[in-house]
Amino acid sequence: MEKDRKDAGAISITAMADMPYYYHVGFYYSRFLRELRDSKRIVGVKCPECEKVYVPPRIVCRDCFVTMEEFLPVSSEGTLLAYTVTNFSYTDTTKGEPKKIPYTAAYIKLDGSDSNIVHCLDETDETRIKAGMRVRAVFSGDRTGDYFHDIDHFEIIEH
């Protein structure tokens, strides 16, 4: 059998390549991001056949494969389905910088939506978070239409 090779003089080299990317976010996301920026509204799009509401909006229903045209606002409140307190850093590919930790990734179903979104929650103590909690979007003061940043974070609705 071919032996594994051990070479004390093996050389490793570093290569750095900038890989800039210019996303054309498209008709549906443009509308979504504009509504967030200009009106602090979260909009989805409704399937004309099965009437499912998708947030963020997209062109076709994944079940019916029909073009969706009807935009409608959904609530900025919703239910926390799942979460994780992230304790390891990695390159945030939207900025090319290390992601600040800890942060809590929150998977949320907004009221009025049939699909889910992922954003962050302003609570990093896992003992104070539970799946099923009610949460609400907190919009950014300075809204730019960039990525999903015009929602700054989600917060837990206290009872």
Binding site: A17, Y21, Y22, H24
Partner: peptide
């Protein structure tokens, strides 16, 4: 969507 990236970097 070739227009979104930098072809020279990618083909390099």
């Amino acid at each position: 969507k070739v227009s979104e990236g930098v072809p020279a970097v990618i083909t390099n």
